[in-house]
């Protein structure tokens, strides 16, 4: 139950996420060198327009990509159909988006 539109959206968000995941992994490895502390992380991210854009873009891509993927699982495995399926997948996407953007705001503002 996935149309060309959702399929393309999921592939495009995957394209966006691929370099972002690599950047995120590299950052994590870099960040834990010599211990991990909140002040060190916030020191890097607070006020940084680059990291705000980097992670906001990441959050948008994740919210769209994950919602479409979980939608397929709900449809095929749990046999959820119709408006319930739309409601659940939109809710998941919006929840990921709101929580993600809130976190990005919290560490970069």
């Amino acid at each position: 139950m996935i149309s060309a539109k959702l399929f393309i959206l999921q592939r495009l968000t995957a394209l966006i996420m691929a370099p972002l995941v690599l950047g995120h992994l590299a950052l994590m490895i870099y960040a834990v060198q010599g211990g991990l502390s909140a002040s060190e992380i916030l020191g890097r991210t607070q006020g940084s327009v680059f990291w705000a854009i980097f992670y906001a873009l990441f959050v948008f891509a994740v919210a769209i990509h994950a919602a479409i993927g979980v939608r397929t699982v709900l449809f095929e495995w749990l046999k959820i159909r119709g408006s319930v399926l739309e409601l659940l997948s939109w809710s998941l996407g919006l929840a990921l988006l709101v929580m993600g953007l809130y976190s990005v705001y919290a560490v970069t503002a």
Partner: peptide, 9 residues
Amino acid sequence: VSGNAGCHN
């Protein structure tokens, strides 16, 4: 082939 029942499934 692009609809809800189509190849993208």
